[in-house]
């Protein structure tokens, strides 16, 4: 197996709480691999640190420790011009496409600027490339004169993707790319990611809370809770035989549209909310909400191998699943 294009090892990103001065351990020792031509899902509740992880990878947050190896180089050690050129190959897609586009720029101007930043000096070449980029995200060329406010949500998000493509990226980090869009137009954006993966061999880290969307898009999935990875595996394994009680609870909370299925299912209702990342529980971080928690959970749980590439951070992960779907 070739080396992954992006390898995150034991990454820690902490913030300082301005009031108490305590450390908010948003991302607390995360390891994650991303291969070329692969969409990898990163799921978890809000506040679990999944966005912080994505933002640290593209350099929007500063890592406390750990390493991010991209094409064999450590991004955290890179400096200067070559560093910027390497970093540019990892692009970020934000949740809200409206605020990701300048209100003062037309689509054409925004794409043109991205190309200038990427070092394309020739004006005519840029104009031609702008039209190519729009075509790559299936948008009509006449959109170049539009402002972000004059477009629909789906169009805006595709413009954001086109702008990211202007940097010729190898990796896209997509933070909830469709959760602000209407249900009926999410497919336009999601299928675009599938196309980029298949046509360009793009690697995508898909950060999302919607497990059903991640299931259709991602080959592998990481489940994150309170700054740590709880379970990782191939989508088929993780959705088929979830090993971690947290994954099982998340899956059982996915609403079903068929009222008969909805009534027949067994639901694992989690009580309460995610604890504060300033003071995470000792031992297993999930134990305060876990329906299967026992005394042993107060000690740090082991990484249990469930199958090829299927790993869960739980004392009982080797046992039979608690609530198969």
């Amino acid at each position: 197996m070739p080396e992954p294009i992006l390898r995150v090892t034991d990454l820690k990103t902490h913030f300082r709480d301005s009031r108490t001065g305590a450390d908010i351990r948003a991302c607390d020792g995360v390891s994650l691999d991303l291969n070329a031509g692969e969409i990898v899902g990163l799921v978890g509740e809000s506040g679990c640190g999944k966005s912080t992880l994505g933002r640290t990878i593209v350099g929007l947050e500063r890592a406390r420790s750990g390493s991010i190896r991209f094409k064999g180089q450590d991004l955290l050690a890179l400096r200067g011009k070559t560093g910027a050129a390497t970093r540019r190959e990892i692009q970020y897609i934000f949740q809200d496409p409206l605020s990701s586009l300048s209100p003062r720029q037309t689509v054409g101007e925004a794409l043109d600027e991205a190309l200038i930043i990427n070092g394309e000096g020739n004006r005519a070449a840029r104009q031609a490339r702008v039209l190519e980029l729009l075509a790559a995200v299936s948008l009509p060329a006449q959109l170049v004169h539009r402002y972000a406010r004059e477009m629909s949500g789906g169009q805006r998000q595709r413009v954001c993707i086109a702008r990211a493509l202007a940097a010729d990226p190898k990796v896209l980090v997509c933070d909830e790319p469709v959760s602000s869009l209407d249900v009926s137009i999410r497919a336009q954006v999601m299928n675009l990611f599938l196309k980029l993966r298949d046509d360009l061999g793009m690697a995508c880290l898909l950060i999302a809370h919607d497990l059903a969307i991640v299931r259709l898009a991602a080959q592998r999935v990481y489940v994150m809770y309170l700054g740590k990875i709880m379970e990782e595996g191939q989508s088929a394994d993780l959705y088929g035989q979830p090993a971690h009680p947290y994954t099982q609870a998340l899956l059982s909370a996915v609403p079903l549209t068929n009222p008969d299925d909805e009534q027949a299912r067994r639901r694992i209702l989690l009580s309460g909310d995610v604890p504060s990342p300033m003071n995470p529980p000792s031992g297993c971080r999930f134990r305060t909400r876990c329906p299967a928690a026992r005394a042993v959970c107060e000690t740090a749980p082991p990484m249990v191998q469930r199958g090829a590439g299927h790993v869960a951070l739980c004392h009982f992960a080797a046992d039979a699943p608690l609530g198969a779907l």
């Binding site: 249900v183 009926s184 497990l211 259709l216 989508s235 959705y239 549209t257």
Partner: peptide, 17 residues
């Protein structure tokens, strides 16, 4: 149809309007 379910085959594309 635009709401992906946990039961459709994994390699299906996203459906929308």
């Amino acid at each position: 149809q635009s709401v992906p379910s946990l039961t459709v085959p994994m390699d299906t594309k996203f459906v929308g309007l």
